[in-house]
Nucleic acid binder design. Sequence first.
DNA 1: CTGAAAGCGCTTACAG
DNA 2: CTGAAAGCGCTTACAG
Lengths: 372, 372
Amino acid sequence: MIETPVKEDARRPKGRGAPGDGLKGEDAPKVKVNMREVARMADVSVATVSMVLSNNPRISRATQLRVRQVIDQVGYRPNRLAQSLSGQYTNVLAIVVPALRHAFADAYFGELISGITDRAHKMQMKLMLEVAKPDFIKEDRHIELIERRFVDGILCLGFNDRHRHGFLEDFVGRQYPMVVVNNYFKDMDLDSVVCDYRSGVQQVMNFLTQLGHRKIGFINGAPEAQTQRDLLEVYQENMVANGMKPGDGWVSDGRFTEAGGAVAAAAILDRHPDTTALFTGNDKMALGAMHYLSRRGLRVPQDVSVIGFDDLQHAAFVSPSLSTVHLPLYEVGVLACDKLVERVRGKIDRVAEVLPTHLILRESTALAAPRA
Amino acid sequence: MIETPVKEDARRPKGRGAPGDGLKGEDAPKVKVNMREVARMADVSVATVSMVLSNNPRISRATQLRVRQVIDQVGYRPNRLAQSLSGQYTNVLAIVVPALRHAFADAYFGELISGITDRAHKMQMKLMLEVAKPDFIKEDRHIELIERRFVDGILCLGFNDRHRHGFLEDFVGRQYPMVVVNNYFKDMDLDSVVCDYRSGVQQVMNFLTQLGHRKIGFINGAPEAQTQRDLLEVYQENMVANGMKPGDGWVSDGRFTEAGGAVAAAAILDRHPDTTALFTGNDKMALGAMHYLSRRGLRVPQDVSVIGFDDLQHAAFVSPSLSTVHLPLYEVGVLACDKLVERVRGKIDRVAEVLPTHLILRESTALAAPRA
DNA sequence: CTGAAAGCGCTTACAG
DNA sequence: CTGAAAGCGCTTACAG
């Protein structure tokens, strides 16, 4: 093999080190090496090295071994840019979250992201993190993510109806792999993995009713989210079935925050001082509501029962500990990741998964104690 | 221009659509187009298109405009895999965090990550998210990140002395761009951006001393972190200066958690029932300590003052609100990102930034009230 | 101011 | 079972 005089790389002055002298011994130290070098050292073609790397069964066991030995010896690592440029996939997924203050310090997102990262890494996929600020959306960066080949697919967390135009709808027409995580849209053809919110509320309402509660206030997260509208709807059906008029000041928005939950609780109790139970669209608002109730001199659960939604870690550690609906958020993240990869690889062309929810009973709920 | 009959791509059966018919009009809809196509349509070379894209001043204004017009018309977006393979940078950075339960639901990491993402996106850089589980480290994935050209540089959050071997030390020898975020190592040549912990404790000790406190307990986060050892050291110096023996059961480890803080507080108070103040290595442990104190029937701050470290959002919203040392974590994230990019681009070759900290006084501290 | 050409480091039909 | 060769879509000296 006299051929292949290592050619000079004239146009790359500040390159990351030349491939070597072409005569280098088998035990050369860590000089960065490419597939061509490995092929030469193992006395095979680059095609063979490539196939060894992808465990192509067409390569004989002997060749496999020989090539792998050279790879280990020289510490060769394939350049993933070249792999993806030649190949079909980037093996990278994007997590996109809206620009919320403290999104990354929120246990809700934290659970979802933990599920996603665990699964992605298990599948040897990488993850990119994007925050969808207004200019991100305006400049079509979400589309760029796919079209410029940053990633194979996208997971959208925390988006709602306000993000339809100019963002979510872009994915519909183009058929780009994207999965909405823990929300869904009724009239847009988007893939999603979501918890069964309707069943969750229904369990709450059944439970509260059994405890004798009729005067139940509902603190809504945000009507822009379909899941929150589902909560409201089922709540209202149950109120009506119990002979109550839910439109009548029993519902208030808490914007998903502790502070909002406190304000909403105040609004409901001012209007209906005889409220015996408060149900909230997430745990944070429940904590805010409990905080307000204690300031108002009402005991939980003796005077007012409080029941949340999410079952974040925190909910078990407040006093009184919070009864709530458990959402399998970690599992939602795992499944969303799984399904997205199947979508990317063309094994499925529609994702519409629903995961079950169930009631967790702790100390914040009790028998209704009617008050004036 | 009769040349360039669009050549058939025989080897790519499931390709993402052919480049077109080679005669396509200027207003063709979104068929995916590459730089060669754009060049042909604008009647220039690909080199020129490339230079237009990088705003190379050598290109005339007229050509600039013409090329940009074609780009807009056909909706051309450069393939970033090809760009990075040919070019010097990936323009991607990695955030690596250890595999802690709920790392992504922790406001401490949340603040750092918010700062990093904001800055990175402002600089048109992308971010990858990695969780360093044991096998991530064992399989040298941290090295792969750079060597396989996933990213240009790495930001390490939440690592300490236990991660030296087989992980952090790998970066030292290879000189790969990596910045340790909010920790540092005395005898390893690693870049870092960190808060001034020593000044923070000193302010705490001065303040408590002025309030008449001498019997001050210290709840340590974890001795594996240099920053926590700094806290301990300065605390001890001050105790000695006040004639106390700090080794004598005044210090206890709280492992950074609420539960750990409660246990540590119990240990210190059992040993020293006359403790008048507790200082903790982070806010979470302070909350745990406060929780324990109230269970033990001690009032904060009347009986025992409590002072934390971090100043997370939450600290202002507990009762009593928590006095603490403010850490500019968002700014640490921003600066770390900034400096890492400068390192990557060879503008600097050493990062050792220290950001100032300051005391925040709220309700959890008061004059020492000596008890038996 | 612009173009022709080499090169980045892979993957994949195709042929044998 | 393996190799030669084309191709992925860019960037960058070099030459004019």
